[in-house]
Design a protein around this nucleic acid. Structure first.
Ligand SMILES: Nc1ncnc2c1ncn2[C@H]1C[C@H](O)[C@@H](COP(=O)(O)OP(=O)(O)OP(=O)(O)O)O1
Ligand SMILES: [Mg+2]
Ligand SMILES: [Mg+2]
Length: 801
DNA sequence: CATTTGGAAGAT
DNA sequence: ATCTTCCA
């Protein structure tokens, strides 16, 4: 009947200015205003990665700097992308929102391919064929937001009255109707708007989707391809947007798809390879047979960080710090993935770019991944980095670090060997608490990031700024919190932070609890930014108070109701109860169910009612907001507490107060070692020399480049970097680092001291601990603080061997 | 010097 | 296994 290439009906759904929409849903006061999501605040107002449509109208685009955007559009709201903790990261929200959308799409076809965080291909051929048996695409109403390439929608519908109409177009038409339904469902269930393209293959569906945005959809009939191709630049076709597309255009002296169509298949195959040539030939005729391959979860999970220009990592503390950051983050994400998808990554790839003699040298190395152990991962990563990036002078010049885990394998479901090793006491109970929902775990992360070392100024500054803004907002004249002394300078500046912290602890009574002690701390899973933007609404806004605005929003029509309700439910569904000392998973289960299985009815509940089991909250919004502020302040005070320093009597260094105990342990251990160094400092294993492996010089891809500045700069740098050379070194058997000979003995001391330190700590803190427990739920508490101790930090997994 | 960060797939 | 290309 029909040709193979017009059999399928493929839909590409792409969310409109996705990150912005997520932020708008979170904070309805942003709706209607020009906003952009900005990342990397350290330079020129940050880089913009998403722009909503009002802001686009003013000429703001991706790639712009925050400052430029402000210039083009003075009242733009720049939403900052925070990276403090996985649960606070905005990208986590975007990922979760993407999953939410995918879940809606999945109801329409099993043939769903998630192509990025905000788009997915769907093969809805079956659904179309089925509905065509019983229905006829009839009314224009059903295609209200649908465009048809090459003709208007009504004409498209009318064409089916004729005997000779294209069967394939009828399929697309029905595809359009189904897609309208899909998009309506996405909006209804998630509050997000999207656009879609409907065609017979993926490339055309993607192309069509971009033709009418936002919140619209486009059918691209096969018999309209040629008219569309008439002036269509090659680069608009997926996979021709990069170098190859450029080459193609240059090689053949063409710019449009129409021109490509005029090249013979042989020419194309001769010039390129078989596969490429025939793909080009076909796509020039609107043919693309690539199937929609079912994929709902990613094949790899990774994170990376660039250190451009002068920010390149030089000393081992910096490298250690960032290696730890990356390995902590990837471990957390892998653990979430394990719970969500019941699978484990079996290997990881460590990548880096290092500058050697002014050349960027990049390489990546794969490494088996046996367990999700942040310390082990950090140690392995560091080993790779040290092997390739540590210069003979003991320094680095690292411009990029990355780690990615992949080769996922499904977990066996019946048998968990780790439970066999578990001591059969209470530990087994607490095991069922998700680590990220454990309060002490959560706070330990805040602590860690509060107690950042000097290298992470970004984080520190970001937090400081947030805190300043919050304080300012609370004290601003029109703030309803003005008289509530939420931030009393005296208290904060006094040394009584703990008292404030204590006072801010929000207590909640849970009537359902059979336990006599019904006091729980609360946590809130959001970032400061959310609350800030709530308070920091535009000064020229008409409303008089925050309360007014909230109430007004709630009173609005159905359209904004979805947003309002989700806004509050976002906050309050995440206010959960915890105890420090016993299993709270039963409460968590309750709240989780509420979140995950939220049905349409639940979605209509607004405000305080979404508290679920926490009914004893005051249900006026005013009180709720004060609650949020208290929680936020507690975070901030906590942060302040964690960053207070004190001079160490032993070494005169500024040590974080919270680290002082373990820091003194360190001195204690060090003293022992110095006294008895000869007992420990004996055998050292010789390093095994491996054959050198390949590294690659990164090619400069800059189009415009002033040779002169480049040369100038290089000569400058050269004289700078060659000061320190050729210090005689020896490789440390514990950490594989090259240590200057003069420091080698004390370096070994350090490792032994570290080991003693760990042993002492474990004796002091945990004498119930029996021999080899493979995974300890308390592990995060036991982790030695990293950072301050002098010179080199060892990776403790190595020491245990 | 400086979009950044994340992910998939193809080439070698 | 490692590197390159393309994309969001
Ligand atoms: N180069 C990038 N770097 C980092 N994040 C990006 C980049 N490009 C896009 N993103 C993120 C932010 C976007 O909101 C999200 C989806 O991208 P994309 O669909 O291309 O644009 P968009 O959804 O913001 O607008 P549109 O309405 O045009 O689809 O991915
Ligand atoms: Mg999009
Ligand atoms: Mg997209």
């Amino acid at each position: 009947m029909e040709f193979e290439h017009t059999n399928r009906v493929i839909v590409l759904v792409d969310m409109d200015c996705f990150y912005c929409q997520v932020e708008e849903k979170l904070n309805p006061f942003l709706v209607g205003k020009p906003i952009a999501v900005v990342q990397y605040n350290a330079w020129k107002g940050g880089g913009i990665i998403a722009v909503n449509y009002p802001a686009r109208d003013k000429g703001v685009t991706r790639h712009m700097r925050g400052n430029e955007a402000k210039a083009k559009c003075p009242n733009i709201v720049l939403v900052r992308y925070l990276k403090v903790h996985l649960l606070l990261q905005t990208i986590t929200r975007y990922r979760d929102a993407g999953k939410e959308v995918a879940a809606v799409l999945q109801a329409y076809t099993p043939l769903l391919e998630r192509a990025s965080v905000d788009e997915a291909y769907m093969d809805i051929t079956d659904a179309v064929n089925e509905r065509l048996l019983n229905e006829h695409p009839i009314t224009l109403e059903q295609l209200r937001n649908t465009h048809v390439v090459g003709c208007n929608t009504q004409d498209f519908l009318d064409s089916f009255k004729y005997e000779h109409h294209l069967e394939s177009n009828l399929k697309l038409c029905m595809g359009g109707i189904i897609t309208e339904e899909i998009r309506a469902a996405v909006f209804e269930k998630t509050g997000y708007k999207c656009s879609a393209g409907i065609a017979h293959n993926k490339v055309l569906a993607k192309l069509a989707c971009g033709l009418h945005k936002p919140n619209q959809q486009t059918i691209l009939p096969q018999d309209s391809v040629n008219s569309l191709y008439e002036t269509l630049p090659l680069r608009k076709i997926r996979s021709l947007g990069g170098k190859f597309g450029c080459n193609l255009s240059e090689d053949l002296g063409i710019t449009t798809m129409k021109e490509l169509q005029q090249i013979s298949e042989n020419d194309l195959i001769n010039r390129y390879d078989d596969k490429t040539g025939s793909w080009l030939y076909k796509i020039a005729r609107g043919i693309d047979l690539e199937p929609v391959t079912v994929r709902l979860v990613s094949k790899s999970i990774g994170c990376c960080k660039k250190f451009p220009g002068r920010t390149a990592l030089v000393c081992c503390e910096d490298v250690q710090y960032w290696v730890n950051e990356l390995s902590n983050e990837i471990t957390e994400r892998l653990n979430r993935d394990l719970e969500e998808n019941n699978r484990k990554a079996k290997h990881m790839v460590v990548g880096f770019v290092n500058e050697i003699n002014r050349r960027d040298v990049s390489a990546s190395r794969t490494h088996p991944l046996h367990s999700y152990d942040a310390e082990k991962i950090a140690a392995d990563m560091l080993k790779v980095v040290n092997k390739h990036c540590l210069n003979s002078n003991g320094y680095y010049r690292i411009k990029y670090l990355g780690i990615s885990a992949g080769k996922f394998e499904d977990c066996k479901k019946g048998y968990d060997i780790s439970s066999y090793f578990k001591s059969g006491d209470k530990e087994a109970n607490t095991q069922s608490v998700k680590p990220e929902y454990n309060l002490s775990y959560f706070f330990s992360k805040i602590e860690k990031h509060g107690a950042v070392n000097e290298t992470s100024m970004d984080t520190k500054e970001a937090l400081q700024e947030e805190s300043n803004n919050l304080e300012e907002s609370c004290n601003s004249n029109d703030s309803i919190y003005k008289n509530q002394n939420l931030f009393d300078d005296q208290d904060v500046k006094s040394d009584n932070l703990e008292a404030i912290y204590e006072a801010d602890t929000v207590m909640i009574d849970f009537p359902e609890t059979n336990d006599d002690n019904t006091k729980y701390e609360t946590k809130i899973q959001t970032s400061f930014t959310d609350v800030l933007s709530l308070v920091n609404r535009d000064k020229d806004s008409e409303s008089d108070s925050i309360t007014d605005e909230i109430l007004n929003n709630e009173d609005k029509d159905d359209n904004s109701k979805a947003n309002t309700s989700s806004y509050f439910s976002h906050y309050f569904k995440n206010v959960e109860s915890f105890s420090r000392n016993f299993d709270t998973s039963k409460y968590l289960d309750v709240s989780n169910n509420e979140v995950e299985t939220s049905s349409p009815e639940n979605d209509e509940i607004i405000g305080g009612e979404t508290f679920g089991n926490s009914e004893t909250f005051e249900s006026t919004n005013n009180t709720n907001l004060i609650l949020i502020f208290k929680i936020m302040r507690q975070h901030l005070v906590k942060l302040l507490i964690m960053t207070r320093k004190e001079k160490c009597k032993e070494c005169n260094k500024q040590i974080l107060k919270t680290d002082m105990t373990s820091h003194m342990d360190y001195h204690f251990a060090l003293q022992i070692v110095r006294n008895e160094a000869h007992l420990y400092n004996n055998n050292s294993t010789s390093a095994i020399s491996n054959p050198p492996k390949k590294t690659v010089e990164v090619k400069k891809t800059k189009r415009k480049r002033s040779e002169i500045t480049s040369t100038k700069l290089t000569t400058f740098l050269k004289s700078n970097t060659q000061e320190v050379v050729n210090v005689p070194t020896e490789t440390c058997p514990h950490c594989d680092k090259n240590i200057p000979n003069t420091e080698f003995a004390s370096h070994l001391d350090y490792h032994v001291a570290k080991k003693l330190h760990l042993e002492i700590n474990s004796l002091l803190k945990d004498n119930t601990k029996t021999a080899p427990v493979p995974k300890n739920i308390n592990k995060t508490k036991q982790k030695p603080k990293q950072g301050k101790p002098p010179s080199v930090i060892a990776f403790s997994s190595k020491i245990r061997n």
